[in-house]
């Protein structure tokens, strides 16, 4: 296992679109382990995408289970993830291991349905919402060469966009 170097913006490689995983072999397992070790070595990241360590395959890790009052499906290794349904939208604050010292508001779907494979190639399907759904959408953007910076919305306008009525 190894802690890998994280690409940071404006590194052009963060714009690269990742390829689907085709072989579930020992090399894949090793890369996944390194990716997780790299995530854990960073400052409190709830997720990481393979592209952030210059590994351009469609793999990501999300784990929001350490947060209070946050619905979650535990520690997830997601290979070739696809969002099959979106519902609602919410503004939330995001930062990124690849964009140090900056956070901003981003609109994401509030609920998603997600198909993916696990690290052994078995099919997974999840209904996700809130913070976990946001984390998956953030990481999936990396697989398509996108950063949260590409989706920033104004901090000054959010009074009228957020759901303040309960």
């Amino acid at each position: 296992m190894a802690v890998l170097e994280i690409l940071t913006y404006p590194d052009d490689r963060l714009r690269q679109v990742s390829e689907p995983v085709k072989q579930f072999d020992a090399a894949l397992q090793g890369c996944i382990d390194d990716l997780e070790e790299t995530r854990l070595a960073g400052p409190g990241a709830v997720g990481i995408a393979a592209a952030q360590v210059a590994w351009f395959q469609r793999v990501l890790i999300v784990d929001v289970s350490g947060r209070k009052k946050t619905g979650n499906h535990g520690h997830l290794i997601l290979v070739n993830p696809e969002i099959t349904e979106w519902d609602g939208f919410a503004i939330g604050r995001e930062g990124c291991l690849s964009v140090p010292d900056y956070t901003g508001n981003v609109v994401r779907a509030e609920r998603i349905q997600l198909d993916a494979l696990d690290r052994d190639g078995n099919a997974l399907c999840f209904d996700m919402e809130g913070f976990e759904a946001r984390a998956v959408q953030h990481e999936m953007d990396h697989l398509d060469g996108l950063l949260f910076l590409d989706r920033l919305v104004s901090r000054r306008q959010d009074l009228f966009q957020r759901k303040v009525y309960k």
Partner: peptide, 11 residues
């Protein structure tokens, strides 16, 4: 008055 936590996602 609405007081809300800001949960910053780092990913």
């Amino acid at each position: 008055i609405d007081v809300r936590p800001i949960d910053t996602l780092i990913g």
